[in-house]
Design a protein around this nucleic acid. Sequence first.
DNA 1: GCCATAAGTCATCGATTGATGACAAGGGAT
DNA 2: ATCCCTTGTCATCAATCGATGACTTATGGC
Lengths: 195, 195
Amino acid sequence: MTYADFMTQPRRRDKAATRAALLEAARLRFAQHGYDGTGVRDIAGDVGVDPALVFRYFGSKDRLYGEAVTVEVPAGRLGDPDRPITHITDGLLHDVVFADWEEFDGEHPLLVMLRSSGRTAIRDQLRERICADYLQGFAERMGGPDAALRAELVGALLLGLGVMRSLIGSPALSDAAFEETRTLVARMVAALADD
Amino acid sequence: MTYADFMTQPRRRDKAATRAALLEAARLRFAQHGYDGTGVRDIAGDVGVDPALVFRYFGSKDRLYGEAVTVEVPAGRLGDPDRPITHITDGLLHDVVFADWEEFDGEHPLLVMLRSSGRTAIRDQLRERICADYLQGFAERMGGPDAALRAELVGALLLGLGVMRSLIGSPALSDAAFEETRTLVARMVAALADD
DNA sequence: GCCATAAGTCATCGATTGATGACAAGGGAT
DNA sequence: ATCCCTTGTCATCAATCGATGACTTATGGC
């Protein structure tokens, strides 16, 4: 049997595998084209399966989206409260901004949600996750009267980096080595933390 | 004649005024719900006019979007090449990030485009404008071997600030006074410019 | 006041959307 | 080999999409 025969051959029936394949295809589609720009037929077409299965396995397009972009984000290695803030941002830069989220076409799920932020439900979830998962941890390590504000400035920097890298595709940042960027970011964050 | 009568009264026929009203309604809708989340009927409905007029005056939804988000952005007061970079970012922070773009529902047109970045044409235009209008000016004032990278870090910070403020709506940054934020941003940028 | 032109409306097209339920077919257990 | 439950397909619905062209109505010049 040739390879072409193998590919055109009907796939073996497996609920779990099909469901997982749909989920992965949905992640890619939503990441590239946003919620409104992605159709159920597109996703099912990528997997090579009937669109009706999407509704059988996920109930609705909304629930599929919810399950697709919901991923346990590393809380940011916020373990030791005495750890300097630049170590935290180093870790986040590496794990969140520079990490290759291959299941989301290389983009962080938060940036994927950004592209679908026209829907208020998605925007609310986005704010909720950014504030709870990241900003609060920053603020606790900042100290001072305007700790919250400075924490959000750090968040803005990291978020902006992600947007520039994967969404805009700015030339220098996209090509830069991690270590080079890390040094510069650490400088900016340190300037913010000093009193 | 009561106010209700006045409102339900058919508006006076005026091509220029209707066209302008459609354009403004389009800006608001696109800003809030993105390209795919906005229908021609929604826009026309806001103005209280027939959807067919959109095509008569703008040709297509695509061209309406193009005309709606295209706005002459202040080039960033890049006049004097000797002006320190922090002065530039001060001005941009004030005119671009903190400015209230009322015709775009308070958001900067670039952030509006961000919400529609699922469409590759929009994403390309977005990158083009950010690189040409801002990053290049930054890089010229940076100097050093990695000027381009550091320029994009400044751009990432400003872009992230805009996203946090208007798109995410993070609490501290949204409420903070301009002067307070300006001081902290200047600190971060200065740390980047020093050798 | 009439009339031509511009402004706005209406009906409708074809494609696509999310979603539903009836139906066909594969696969393991007996 | 047969049976039955699970998996996947098909046909289709109602709504909405962008878009088009024919029609109606208001308005300014005479």
